[in-house]
Amino acid sequence: GIPATNLSRVAGLEKQLAIELKVKQGAENMIQTYSNGSTKDRKLLLTAQQMLQDSKTKIDIIRMQLRRALQ
């Protein structure tokens, strides 16, 4: 079985993952909103794209940590 310490770690990672998935969803929504907007929305679009990139990276890292914890 999986050690108890790993189980609480997994629960924490799953919570983090859920949050990051919401951030990713929000960033994707912002990108959709701003991509057909005016030029003043360009900065917001770039910010949203950066957020999305960061979020995807975090999600990958969390998933990797989850896999390790579940081994």
Rank of each mutant, 00 (worst) to 15 (best):
R67A: 11
R63Q: 08
T47I: 13
E20Y: 12
Q65V: 03
T47M: 12
K58S: 03
I2M: 13
I62F: 02
D54E: 12
K43I: 09
L17D: 00
D54M: 10
A4P: 06
A69H: 04
G37C: 13
A18Q: 14
A18W: 07
S38G: 10
K40A: 12
P3N: 10
A4L: 05
A69T: 05
G12T: 14
D60R: 14
L66V: 02
M51V: 07
Q25W: 08
D60L: 14
I59K: 00
G37L: 06
E14Y: 15
K40C: 10
R63C: 14
R63K: 09
N29W: 06
D54R: 13
V23E: 02
L7C: 15
Q50G: 03
S8L: 09
R63G: 03
D54W: 06
N29P: 00
M51Q: 06
N36A: 06
V23T: 05
A4D: 11
S35A: 09
S55E: 00
T33P: 01
L44M: 10
S55C: 13
R68A: 13
D60N: 11
I59M: 02
N36K: 09
G1R: 09
S8G: 10
S38E: 11
Q16I: 10
M64H: 10
E20T: 05
D41N: 07
L21E: 03
R9H: 14
K40T: 06
T39D: 11
T5Y: 11
I2L: 09
Q25P: 00
S35Q: 08
A27R: 03
L13N: 00
T33A: 11
L52P: 00
K43F: 10
Y34I: 08
L70Y: 08
I59W: 00
M64W: 11
A48K: 01
V10C: 13
L46K: 06
G1E: 14
T39R: 05
R9M: 15
T39S: 11
S55W: 01
E28M: 09
T57Y: 05
L66S: 00
N6Q: 10
A4V: 14
A27N: 01
I19P: 00
S35M: 10
K24L: 15
A48M: 05
L17W: 01
A4F: 02
L44P: 02
G37H: 04
G37Y: 02
L13F: 03
Q32E: 07
M51F: 04
G12Y: 15
L21F: 06
L46Y: 07
E28N: 03
S38H: 07
A18R: 10
L7G: 13
R42Q: 14
Q71Y: 05
L17V: 01
E14V: 15
L7E: 12
R68W: 13
K40Y: 13
Q25I: 08
Q65S: 03
Q32F: 04
Y34A: 05
Q32T: 07
M30C: 09
Q25H: 07
Q71D: 09
R9Q: 15
K40S: 12
M30W: 04
A11H: 05
E20F: 12
A48H: 02
P3F: 08
I62P: 00
G37M: 06
L45C: 05
L70P: 02
I62N: 00
T5P: 10
A4N: 14
M64F: 08
I62V: 02
M51P: 00
M64D: 14
V23M: 06
N29V: 11
A27F: 15
L17C: 08
S38C: 11
Q49Y: 15
L46T: 04
D54L: 09
K56N: 14
I2A: 10
Q16R: 09
T39M: 11
E20A: 08
M64A: 13
L46N: 07
I19V: 12
S38T: 14
I59D: 00
K43P: 06
M64R: 13
A69F: 08
A4E: 14
K43Y: 10
R68H: 15
T57C: 14
I2G: 07
I59F: 00
L17Y: 02
K43L: 10
D60F: 15
D60M: 14
I19Q: 09
P3M: 06
V10E: 01
L7M: 07
L17G: 00
R9C: 15
P3L: 09
K58C: 05
Q50M: 06
R67S: 06
L13H: 01
Q71H: 13
Q50S: 07
